[in-house]
């Protein structure tokens, strides 16, 4: 297991290195950073001063070497918008996003897995139809629209919770639900079909023949096998929330996390901050993937080193 984690970490390191190279190329070569980051009214002298300040006047290879060197010291430069170290800004916003993803996906799995499993007990029964209907609705609703709708009804209309911002549990409710709904719908659908599939397996029939009560057959036997593919999906949900959905949800609710900050960084043409965010997101994705691989090995004894 130790060597397995070590090898995955090395692979992950290469992935992160690749991502940073892409980021470097994208920011230096596709556009002119000086043009992007300075206001349109800046003079040529100001541009030259800016380029000199950030070393943008040097040859590309020299820039890349110092870029990677800074990276090794986790120095992403100074955020132009916030006027402090970019990484500091990122680390400050990070917990808020983790909190949102944690609560949102906890909600999605805690609701989605049991509902999906119960729906699978009687495929095409009344309960199943309700669950499938809910899932399809959840899958079809655009997330930003769902967020706005929830604000209109529960924050503006009923006044139960604040419209935006963070700080209390009440602030958390609407963003977490908004983030959870599409994930919950996908998890429900997969759990349902996965449990239906497992309940038709021979080992389920032999467990019944050994006199195991249905509850035990469902939870001890079928569910454990059914959750192997579900774990893949949950991992994917974590990654897509981390690298995408939170940007939408945090922007709708002005949730002061990484996604909202990424939007602001873009609006402020703050390339250094954006680089730091992309780096942290890439590291996060790699870590989640390693975590998933470890979990798979723990759950399914058939998975050998791969």
């Amino acid at each position: 297991m130790g060597t397995f984690i070590l090898r995955r970490s090395l692979q992950g390191f290469l992935v992160v290195l690749g991502v940073t190279i892409v980021v470097f190329v994208a920011t230096r070569m596709i556009g002119d950073p000086a043009q992007v980051m300075l206001p349109l009214s800046a003079t040529d002298a100001q541009r030259a001063a800016f380029e000199q300040q950030f070393g943008l006047d040097r040859p590309l290879d020299a820039q890349f070497i110092s870029f990677v060197g800074d990276l090794m010291r986790f120095d992403f430069g100074e955020s132009l918008w916030q006027r402090r170290a970019a990484l500091e800004v990122v680390l400050e916003k990070l917990p808020k996003t983790l909190e949102l993803i944690g609560v949102g996906l906890l909600l999605a799995t805690v609701v989605g897995i049991p509902l999906g499993a119960l729906a699978a007990v009687r495929p095409d029964g009344l309960f199943d139809r309700v669950v499938v209907g809910l899932s399809l609705t959840g899958l079809s609703v655009p997330q930003f629209w769902l967020g706005l709708l929830l604000i209109m009804v529960f924050a503006v209309g009923l006044g139960w919770v604040p419209t935006f911002g963070s700080g209390s549990l009440a602030h958390m409710i609407l963003p977490a639900i908004t983030l959870a709904v599409p994930s919950m719908a996908r998890i429900m659908m997969l759990v349902r079909s996965s449990v239906i599939n497992e309940l038709n397996q021979q080992y389920v029939r032999t467990a019944k023949a050994r006199g195991m009560p249905f509850g035990r057959v469902l939870f001890q036997h079928a569910m454990r096998n059914a959750l192997v593919p579900v774990l893949t999906l949950v991992g994917w949900e974590v990654i897509s929330a981390w690298a995408g959905y939170t940007v939408v949800v945090e922007t709708v609710f002005a949730w002061p996390g990484l996604g909202f900050t990424a939007m602001k960084a873009i609006n402020h043409s703050d390339l250094f901050l954006l680089q730091a965010i992309v780096f942290v997101v890439a590291v996060g994705i790699v870590l989640v993937n390693i975590g998933l691989d470890v979990l798979f090995k723990l759950i399914d004894p058939r998975i050998k080193e791969a």
Binding site: Y203, T206, A209, R210, G211, R224
Partner: peptide
């Protein structure tokens, strides 16, 4: 019947490869 099943009345199936829970 439910109390007999697996105790007084038991069964061996055709395909041993799929008859055991792979995760147990």
């Amino acid at each position: 019947a439910a109390s007999l099943r697996g105790k007084s009345l038991s069964m061996v199936f055709q395909d041993p490869m799929t008859s055991l829970n792979p995760l147990m």
